[in-house]
Amino acid sequence: MSSPAEFYHSLPPISKAYGTLCLVATTAFQLGLYNPAHIALLYEDVFYRFQVWRLFTNFFFLGKFSINFGIRLLMIARYGVQLENGPFDRRTADFLWMMIFGSFTLLVLSAIPILWSPFLGISLVFMLLYVWSRESPNAQINIYGLVQLKAFYFPWAMLALDVIFGSPLVPDLLGIIAGHLYYFLTVLHPLAGGKNILKTPMWVHKLVSRWGVRVQPMNRGQPINPAQPETSTGTAFRGRSYRLSD
């Protein structure tokens, strides 16, 4: 069995970086090093006081140390990693672009007063969960050892549990909306004969290349094999890379 250090170093780069930043942000908060109000998404401070860092820092705060924080961090370590190692294997730039697109979508949605949330980290994690559930719809999920269901329904089950335990509904709902928009534009619309309008920009590829991550793109236009089964570990169908390179 590998050590925690070996497990950490084996994680794919984007999920590892995001999870690490979230853990550092919460640890620094618990140590009293900063006030979360200074990194929250406050549009008045962004536009009138030019505190543009709030557009980025709000994504890294998942709350104080708690069971909910642990669950969100586990979602990154499990479903984010499975996405990056599965459907996005050797496509780090595409995975990073998905995160960037999701973040931008959440910022736009949160500008609507009724949907505003000071921290969008939970929403971004929920977006990862939603995209994973669509890529691996038949994977079996066991919730707290009580209920077993297909991954396709997992985001809705988690949303229901959050409501039951008194957590806000809006962050989860924003994540589902952003995740579905991404999945529609990159998978459903192209499969229906539409043009891919969410191609990963060249600057993202250059950024990943400069970062030192070696990425070899998969074959363009590789067809989906409907006979290939999905495993219970959440590995999705391969061959969908054409949706980001068409």
Rank of each mutant, 00 (worst) to 15 (best):
G19I: 09
Y183F: 15
G63R: 10
I112A: 12
D162I: 07
P190R: 03
V213C: 04
P118G: 07
Q140A: 10
F152Y: 14
T105V: 02
E230I: 05
V208Q: 00
V24Y: 08
L149S: 04
A77S: 00
G70F: 03
I100F: 02
L185S: 13
P226F: 08
R78S: 10
Y130V: 13
Q148F: 04
S66A: 08
I224N: 10
F60M: 10
S103E: 00
S136A: 15
P190E: 04
A93D: 08
I39Y: 12
Y183I: 08
L96A: 14
N219D: 11
D45E: 15
M158E: 07
I122K: 05
W97P: 00
L23S: 14
R214A: 01
N142G: 02
Y242F: 09
L124D: 14
L62D: 06
N142W: 03
V46N: 07
A192L: 14
Y242L: 03
F47D: 07
F101M: 11
R54N: 05
F154A: 13
F154L: 06
G239Y: 02
S110Q: 10
I141K: 07
W211V: 00
I177T: 12
L146Q: 11
L33S: 11
S2K: 10
A93E: 07
M98F: 02
F88R: 07
Q140F: 06
P113F: 12
Y48W: 09
I114L: 14
T200P: 02
G193H: 06
F50M: 01
